[in-house]
Design a protein around this nucleic acid. Sequence first.
RNA 1: UGUCUGAUGGUGUAAUAGGCAACACGUCUGAUUCUGGAUCAGAAGAGUCUAGGUUCGAGCCCUAGUCGGACAACCA
Length: 558
Amino acid sequence: MSEDIITSDLSGESKSPTNFIHAIIEEEIRNGKNEGRVHTRFPPEPNGYLHIGHAKSICLNFGTASKYNGLANLRFDDTNPVKEDTEYVDSIMEDVRWLGFDWDDRLYYASDYFDQLYEWAVKMIREGHAYVDDLNAEQISEYRGTVTRPGKESPYRTRTPEENLDLFTRMKDGEFPDGSRVLRAKIDMAHPNMLMRDPIMYRILHTDHHRTGDKWCIYPMYDYAHGQSDYLEGITHSICTLEFEVHRPLYEWYLEQVAEGSYRPRQIEFARLNLTYTVMSKRKLLQLVNEKVVNGWDDPRMPTICGLRRRGYTPESLRAFADVIGIAKRDQVIDVALLEFCVREDLNKRSNRVMTVLNPVKLVIDNFPEGEVIELEAINNPEDPEAGSRLIRFTKELYIEREDFMENPTGKFFRLKPGGEVRLKYGFIIKCEEIVKDSEGNITEIHCTYQEDTRSGMVNSNKKVKGTLHWVSAEHAIPVEVRLYDRLFATETPENVEEGKDFKDNLNPDSLKTITAMAEPSVLKLVVGDRVQFERLGYFCVDPDSTSSKIVLTALLH
RNA sequence: UGUCUGAUGGUGUAAUAGGCAACACGUCUGAUUCUGGAUCAGAAGAGUCUAGGUUCGAGCCCUAGUCGGACAACCA
């Protein structure tokens, strides 16, 4: 008798984590709104590269659609030809796909709707809901009033529909120069919401559009185009960020002018993502690129999706991140450590281990036969038995990490020290016998002895030692370029600056160090985009700058 | 000063018929380990912005404040 309950409890969506948007949707589905249909859209403007904040939105929109057996569209909000470009269209599609989402055949552009939008504008003019204004930009701004003072009506507001229609047609036909006239919605110049004070619907822009070419010289504004595009696509939930909250009344007002029947898309806002130690605004990211603070949009220090990709982040980890940060309406500043946790968790299970020495110092095994090479079996990934193993070569002369030796150890240092013993991973236990220094006192060689029967798997191999070091054979090691990236900013909230300073004053001067490291030969088999864990050091990704003669590795986390 | 909006451990998110504030990250212990990683076990850390009210009982409902965010581009 209770079986039904149990079954429905396990199969329903009620178990999965939810957020306030999903709560709204579930409520609507219960009430039969839109016949239970869920249709979302991701509407980027093709005027820049996507960043991790967009990833949050992409995951929300596409994730919500699939959760409720709905659809998600990709729509380019391309209503401003002076800022937009196909370069961005391409990169955005690549990034959305890379993140793991698919819009099938639902790729749209706001510019697809220019004809319909124009017709609707004409309808609004005929019905007395829109007029052509001859005021210039400065005057319009003056007439608009302020947040505390009402605006005043333009002297052109009372033009007849016929006159407006004539003027609007001539605007479209290119008779007037940029900025000379606009089409405005006739709403209320005293409205407490400034956006309702006769917002501009169309402006004159004698600029070619990346898709419509020179067909148009008037272009619709965001508020007029967006809701109507949603309506035309049958969008049920138009999910956007909080700054559009004040736009909602206008969104709904425009819809009422043109919509028929009872269907209306519904705008719902959520808080945009902020991350500690990063800036997220497109404008500031563009500035970093233009001023060459970073090496382009895909610089591994950038929070852009292409930057994160180059840094080595996996799509899975980004999706997991989007999932774990949640959706709400209060401002969020997520600790970047959470993002790092998400990749680490993913890569720990998936990436092969490699031994690489970033800062080598020579280690000589005095009692190891000259010229002898022993092949040792190394586990590729202890977290994944399927990953198998490889052979690594052990010789008399090795490199170890300079930091793994301390001449005068203090406290809890349990790596190599004079007279101390340590294990060389997959190899032998060695004992430090003496050190050689140059005239300046720098250590140039560390001399050790090894115990043959402590080799991994042999009789004495479970002898206790405090530390295990990674190493490479000096003779076989491959020099590789390693780019050690750190966070771009030195302060948690780089955008919070005192008077007279700007966010670039908070840059971390050491966000990139390039070094030559010594890697085990298996790195030769890696290809661009491969991610590996350097044993005991962190995760690294093969950079596209790699050539056949030089491998470049980007530090993801170290 | 106007409109809209939000407030829960250090951070983020839950608590969806008013019923012992939960989960994750981070931090700290300990165990274990041939990676100071991972894993495992455990701990500290909020009494829910404030003040009133309703109620046997309030994070949740009511009233009044406080503080934060958004909005005055022919940008999106």
